[in-house]
Design a protein around this nucleic acid. Structure first.
Lengths: 152, 152
DNA sequence: GTGCGTGCAAACGGTTTGCATGCTT
DNA sequence: AAGCATGCAAACCGTTTGCACGCAC
């Protein structure tokens, strides 16, 4: 888990290109928000993101975070994550992956499952329409929370 | 797709037993809400459910629907569905299945994928904690919406 | 009769929006 | 210079909660 929110030059260039292609102005706020999200592994909510960003960008407002995330998601630069909770959670686009979600602490972590990525979809889904993406969501309780529960 | 919201005796008995086991009183409202949800194939939101129920139960309040759905979900009688939208969607517990969601009309439909149900989970998920359930969520645009878009 | 469940209305919390100003292009 | 992006504050909307009454047990 990287502590610093520093992107490689390649990632940064790719982001700038994505903005240009989408006709988005490259503002300081957008870059910071993207950086923070791209270096977060925990799929933060808008509010969490805002709190983290505030440390270095004290004037950044929460609604800019919301607006920016909506714009990024609309242009496919980031993803909103499927969840059962009321707060939306976000992630920067990255390698194909799936999610493990802890019902207790709400932590979301990624995992790979190539077997599923390559498995042919069942017939009934293929006649349904256009498929954009396919994700496995696993709910459960993580080890940390199982321990915590045992203790209490 | 059943048009009437009539449960078989077996389903109704199972529901009553589930309530008794959970220590829930069997009220008219709860039965109606469960019936409506169990005979809906479209994973309605609380509000949609309320509108449908109002036709036959004009005094039923929206907050009772919310409270009832929360209680049912808490006791595992129904499920909240993983979604990217802000409104929660619900379904009665039924056979193992997965979801196709149309990003345009928000319709959610079930599909079976035994191949995934039986596939062993990747190692990293097995060491993560306790797994309660595993769902595939597919996003895309359904045929009806593709047609509608073409027309416009 | 006891106390859980309901209806009502008001509060809540996450998210969105209108407007004036600022900054990218 | 032109107009998209931001910050602020107020509105919004789905959901939750406090309270008094009613109904299942």
């Amino acid at each position: 888990m990287p502590k610093s929110n520093i992107l490689t030059t390649g990632q940064e260039d790719a982001f700038e290109k994505a903005c240009r292609d989408a006709g988005l102005r490259l503002t300081h706020q957008r870059l910071e928000i993207y950086r923070q999200l791209a270096t977060s592994t925990d799929h933060p909510s808008a509010e969490t993101l805002h709190q983290r960003l505030r440390r270095d960008n004290p004037t950044l407002s929460l609604d800019t975070v919301y607006r920016t995330l909506a714009v990024f998601a609309h242009h496919g630069i980031i993803n909103k994550v499927e969840t059962v909770e009321s707060q939306s959670r976000f992630e920067a686009k990255r390698m194909r992956h799936h999610h493990l979600i802890c019902s207790r602490c709400k932590e979301i972590i990624d995992f790979q499952w190539h077997h599923i990525d390559e498995a042919p979809l069942p017939e009934e889904t293929r006649t349904w329409g256009r498929i954009d993406n396919k994700n496995v969501v696993i709910y459960g309780v993580c080890n940390k929370c199982l321990e915590a529960k045992k203790a209490s």
